[in-house]
């Protein structure tokens, strides 16, 4: 019983913490961000199972987290507002070659982050980028300029 309550509390607290950490821990995981994911995950597991490390307790904890995830996922598809709160919304970082400074500052992103994403898509120069969009999963989508524009 206590484990289930700890799981529910831990799940939502972790969700809140990761969510307010901005979106970068997801898709653009660097070594720096690995530290957060492993350390936070390791700490929360201690409080979740407590002293009871039995197979029964750990199995119930896994089932609880899985069920919570399923319920929250279902609720997200039914309620777009909840989805926006949990996953966030896409954000335009670069529009027609102009940095959207409010979005960049708000998401604590540097132009280098956008260019790093651009390079993975074979875009070598800043001038080739028409739009850069920070997606909900933390990835940065790059939309290149039309051929005639370049």
């Amino acid at each position: 019983m206590a484990t289930i309550i700890h799981c529910i509390a831990g799940y939502f607290f972790l969700l809140l913490t990761v969510r307010v950490l901005t979106r970068r821990p997801g898709a653009q995981m660097t070594l720096f961000e690995f530290v957060i994911v492993f350390l936070v995950g390791g700490v929360i597991i201690l409080a979740t199972v407590g002293h009871d490390r039995s197979v029964t307790n750990c199995t119930l904890a896994v089932i609880t987290v899985g069920l919570l995830h399923r319920v929250v996922s279902g609720a997200k598809t039914k309620c777009p507002k909840l989805a926006a709160v949990i996953d966030g919304k896409p954000l335009v970082l670069l529009k027609n070659g102009v940095w959207q400074q409010e979005a960049m500052n708000g998401m604590r992103l540097a132009p280098e982050d956008v260019m790093a994403s651009a390079r993975t898509k074979g875009v070598a120069k800043f001038e080739q980028i028409s739009y850069a969009v920070l997606e909900r999963n933390g990835a940065i989508s790059i939309i290149q300029k039309e051929e005639k524009d370049s």
Binding site: A84, G88, K89, P90, L91, V92, E102, A103, G106, Y131, V133, I143
Partner: peptide
């Protein structure tokens, strides 16, 4: 031009 679904009010 592109459908993004951005919501700056929400983001702020």
């Amino acid at each position: 031009a592109i459908s993004v679904g951005e919501d700056l009010d929400f983001q702020e």
